[in-house]
Computed example of a mutant assay.
Amino acid sequence: MISATTAKIINILPNKFVTYISKKMVNKYLKKYASINIQGSENLKGIKTPTIFICNHLSNSDGLVLDKALKEIDPTFVAGIKLSNNAITSIGVNVVKTTNIKPNTADKDGLKKIVSLVKQGESLLIFPEGTRSRVSSLIEAKRGVLLIARMTGAPIVPIGLYGTEKLLPINKEGDMSAETFNYADVHINIGKQFEFPKRAKEQDKKEYEDFAIRYIMKKIAELLPENYRGVYK
C-alpha cells in the first residue's frame, strides 16, 4: 500500500487531479492483486431504481471491488466519516461516490442527505453491519438500514462478498494506514431485488424491527458460503 506521506501529498492536490490519481492507483492495485469473480449480474437487468444495495463488510477494499461490479448503476456508498479523515483510506473514498455518516450517533444531517440522494434518483450501497467484521463472517447488523429503507421506500438488492478479508486484511492494531494488499480471489454474488418487508398490524416496533433486520440480513447470508454466514446462519 502507499505510504501515509504519499497519501497526504496526493490529498492536497486539486480535487480533479486527486480523483484521477486515486483511480489510477486503485486500479493498479486491484489489477495486480485481485482476481474478481462476479455472479448474478443478470439480476441487475431491469431492476427498479433507485435501489438500496446491501452487502456484508470484511475489508476496506469492499467498496473498491463493489464499485467495479456495479459500475453501470454507479451507486453512492454510505461510509463512516473516519474513512475521509484518514490520509490513506481517503484515497479509496476519492475513487467511489460516497456520502458520509457518523456511526453510532443520531446523525440527522447525514441521514437527511442520504434520503435526499435517493429521492433525487441515486441508488445507495450500505454495509448494514456498520463496521468491518473482525471474525470474517456476518455480525449483528445495525438498525440504521431499516430507517433508511423505510424513509426512502426504495427496493433492496442483496450482495454476498468474500475474499476481500484476504485481499486487504484488517490491521489487528486498528491502524488502517498499515493495511496492505495481498493476492486473493474475490467473489461477488448479486441477489435478486426485493421489497422491504412491511410492518404487520399485530407487530410492535421491536418485534417488527427484529424480524425486518433478520429478514434482510438472511438475504445476504444466502449468497455466502456457510462459513461466512456468522450470526445469520
Results as ranks from 00 to 15, higher is better:
Thr99Ala: 02
Gly40Tyr: 11
Gly92Trp: 05
Thr164Arg: 09
Ile213Tyr: 05
Gly230Ala: 07
Lys32Gln: 12
Lys108Pro: 01
Thr152Gly: 08
Thr105Cys: 07
Tyr33Leu: 00
Ser123Thr: 08
Asn189His: 11
Ile91Val: 13
Tyr20Val: 01
Lys71Tyr: 12
Ile101Lys: 01
Asn182Asp: 00
Asp107Cys: 11
Lys166Met: 12
Gly46Trp: 14
Thr49Ile: 08
Ala87Ile: 03
Asn37Asp: 07
Glu179Gly: 05
Ala178Asn: 10
Leu224Gly: 09
Ser41His: 14
Tyr215Met: 00
Asn104Gln: 14
Ser61Asn: 07
Lys48Gly: 02
Glu202Pro: 10
Thr5Gln: 14
Ser3Leu: 01
Lys233Thr: 11
Leu168Gly: 06
Ile148Tyr: 04
Ser177Asp: 14
Ile54Gln: 01
Ser133Arg: 14
Pro169Tyr: 15
Gly191Ile: 13
Val78Ser: 06
Arg150Gly: 10
Glu207Met: 04
Lys172Thr: 06
Ile91Asn: 04
Asn37Ala: 06
Ala69Ser: 13
Lys16Leu: 12
Arg134Gln: 12
Leu146Trp: 09
Asn11Cys: 07
Pro169Val: 03
Thr6Asn: 14
Asn171Ser: 15
Asp74Glu: 12
Ile139His: 02
Pro103Leu: 05
Glu122Asp: 13
Gly130Pro: 05
Gly46Leu: 11
Val96Leu: 09
Ala212Asp: 10
Ala34Ser: 03
Ile36Phe: 04
Phe194Thr: 07
Val78Lys: 00
Asn171Gln: 11
Ser22Gln: 02
Ile88Cys: 09
Ser84Thr: 03
Met25Trp: 15
Ala149His: 10
Asn27Met: 11
Asp185Cys: 07
Lys233Gly: 05
Arg132His: 15
Val145Ala: 02
Ile148Leu: 11
Asn86Met: 04
Ser136Leu: 02
Val18Met: 08
Tyr208Asn: 04
Leu83Pro: 05
Lys119Arg: 12
Glu195Asp: 14
Ala87Tyr: 12
Ser133Ile: 10
Lys71Asn: 13
Arg229Met: 03
Ile81Phe: 14
Pro155Thr: 02
Tyr29Ala: 02
Ile91Arg: 09
Lys24Asp: 01
Gly40Ser: 12
Gly80Ile: 01
